[in-house]
């Protein structure tokens, strides 16, 4: 555990909590892509199956349970409790275009051709692109609530911090996982455009709106 890994995890946790609280306090999931949230629930489910097979640390186990629990709670709020506020007309990204290629890639490029390992690889690849339905929704409506941009910022910062964590681990532990690193780089790149808008607009007190 190093400082980048820890702050990355906390940033990820902050993102998840911000989204849950935003929906809960406003009693609305307007502007939130339910499809992205389903993909994240799928990511956590397929990655954390090792909860059943191996114990790493109390920290590791508790964080996994919190992430999975919050992911399903978010999906429940969007598709059940506050379903009436869900903006399905703008959430039109075709997720099969992500899930099918990512599934195929997980079968082809993995560390070991075993069910749990393929599911882990699938989750890593899927996480890297799971935010696309949300970004697509924002590009379609041309705007995002400020609190939603805070969520996205924390989520992007999390993977960027993991990149520093992997550099650290490579130098000090000789550890590197090429699958996680390549997917993590792709994931971070997808946020770059958003980071630019966040820094130039939201941090200056303006609402995030895209030119028509």
């Amino acid at each position: 555990m190093n400082v980048f890994r820890l702050t990355g995890d906390l940033s990820h946790l902050a993102a998840i909590i911000i989204l849950l609280l935003k929906i809960w306090k406003s009693r609305s999931c307007a502007g939130i892509s339910g499809k992205s949230q389903i993909l994240f629930a799928l990511v956590f489910t397929t990655r954390y199956l090792d909860l059943l097979t191996s114990f790493i640390s109390l920290y590791n186990t508790s964080m996994k349970i919190i992430y999975v629990g919050c992911a399903y709670a978010t999906v429940y709020l969007i598709y059940a409790k506050f379903r009436a506020t869900y903006d399905g007309n703008h959430d039109t990204f075709r997720v099969e275009f992500l899930v099918v290629p990512v599934g195929g890639l997980a079968f082809l490029v993995n560390h070991d051709f075993s069910p749990l390992e393929i599911l882990w690889t699938f989750s890593i690849y899927l996480e890297s692109v799971a935010i696309l339905p949300q970004l697509f929704m924002i590009s379609k409506t041309g705007e995002a609530e400020t609190i939603t941009t805070h969520y996205l910022f924390c989520l992007g910062v999390y993977r960027a911090l993991y990149l520093f964590n992997w550099i650290w681990r490579f130098y000090f532990e000789g550890f590197f996982d090429m699958i996680a690193i390549v997917a993590g780089v792709v994931q971070t790149i997808l946020y770059c455009d958003f980071f630019y808008l966040y820094i130039t607009k939201v941090l200056k007190g303006k609402k995030l709106s895209l030119p028509a």
Partner: peptide, 10 residues
């Protein structure tokens, strides 16, 4: 053993 690749991250 599943966790041979050191998936100790979240």
């Amino acid at each position: 053993e599943y966790n041979v690749y050191g998936h100790d991250e979240l």
